[in-house]
């Protein structure tokens, strides 16, 4: 389907929000205000944006270590996200999870998982739940090319295929797992050969083109809602920063590869397109940007103003009542 003007602006707005949020984390991390493992989603924003645009609150997603974009696209509160990343009591997980483990069960964001591949079995469970509820809801799981090397990936595909689960597999293929290329680590070479072997319908798209992702996800989600079984969407993309923000971690990827992908910036490309179509003007973009910057600043201030948890708070929430 053709996108309306409003849909296009929404997509652009979500991508820009993720970008600005991540840029702020980058600054704060290297200024020393944030610690731990922070994985930047910059360069991959079109995927979370284009896919999650089709999901309702009742649809559940499972994310991975590079998960801020999925949270924002699903409608998470940036203030509570930021507070979690800063380890504050007001964060989504009361400071017990940090950047890698943000979850908001109230909006169907079942959490980001830091063990590569581990979100996949969990997501099969979320889609079994959707199937049992029988309301046409779906689940989506986001994972990297690296996760496709884990047994959990293959087990989840088998189960989804066998039980016709309403599960959308979204592979964010950025070609690398830390500093190991997919060529060095994946025997099937093309990832979609694996879902294909399990008779799972699949499509590969340019993951930096938000409209391509959006359109592919639209068809996929419609299929899922009808109960036609799982779908596998491979989105080719590239991460701009090191595996996680760090002074010490080397980046061993070829420089020219990064430069080439930076020219295919998903946010910039879409901005240019919408300007050309006359849907956005430089003035409108400036206004959108200012509003997003304010929201990110507000989130940052909220986090900074929030108290740290008390040491003894570590003893809470081991079990639920």
């Amino acid at each position: 389907m053709n996108l309306s003007k409003k849909q296009k602006i929404d997509l652009f707005n979500t991508m820009l929000t993720i970008r600005r949020f991540e840029e702020r984390l980058f600054d704060e991390f290297y200024a020393g205000s944030i610690t731990g493992f922070v994985h930047s989603y910059i360069g991959e924003e079109a995927i979370a944006t284009g896919v999650i645009a089709h999901l309702k609150k009742e649809d559940r997603i499972v994310s991975h270590h590079r998960g801020h974009g999925h949270c924002i696209a699903k409608g998470a509160d940036m203030k509570r996200m930021m507070a979690e990343i800063y380890g504050r009591k007001t964060g989504y997980c009361k400071g017990k999870g940090g950047s890698m483990h943000i979850a908001d069960f109230s909006i169907g964001m079942l959490g980001a998982d830091g063990i590569v591949g581990a979100g996949l079995p969990i997501a099969t469970g979320a889609s079994i739940a959707a199937q049992l509820e029988g309301k046409g809801n779906v689940a989506a799981v986001f994972f990297g090319d690296g996760a496709c090397q884990e047994g959990e990936f293959h087990e989840a595909l088998n189960l989804a295929s066998l039980w016709k689960l309403p599960l959308l597999f979204v592979c964010e293929n950025n070609g690398w797992g830390v500093n190991t290329s997919i060529g060095e680590s994946f025997g099937a070479k093309e990832i979609t050969r694996v879902p294909d072997a399990f008779h799972i319908a699949h499509k590969t798209v340019d993951g930096n083109d938000v409209e391509r992702v959006y359109q592919a996800a639209e068809k996929a989600v419609a299929r899922l809602r009808k109960g036609s079984g799982p779908f596998f969407l491979e989105c080719k993309t590239y991460r701009w920063h090191k595996h996680f923000l760090s002074d010490a971690l080397p980046d061993l990827r070829p420089k020219n590869e990064l430069e080439a992908w930076k020219k295919k910036c998903p946010v910039k490309a879409y901005e240019t397109k919408l300007l050309k179509q006359g849907i956005l003007t430089p003035k409108k973009i400036a206004a959108m940007n200012a509003k997003i910057m304010d929201a990110v600043e507000e989130a940052n201030q909220y986090a900074l103003a929030s108290p740290f948890p008390k040491p003894q708070d570590a003893l809470q929430d081991i079990y639920s009542k």
Partner: peptide
């Protein structure tokens, strides 16, 4: 058969699926 499911021999998968089901209210 909807509620009583025979799974593939993939223990890690159904142990994980239980978590996803639990997080979804089952």
């Amino acid at each position: 058969s909807d509620r009583i499911r025979v799974t593939p021999i993939a223990e890690n998968n159904f142990v994980g699926a239980s978590i996803g089901l639990a997080g979804s209210g089952f």
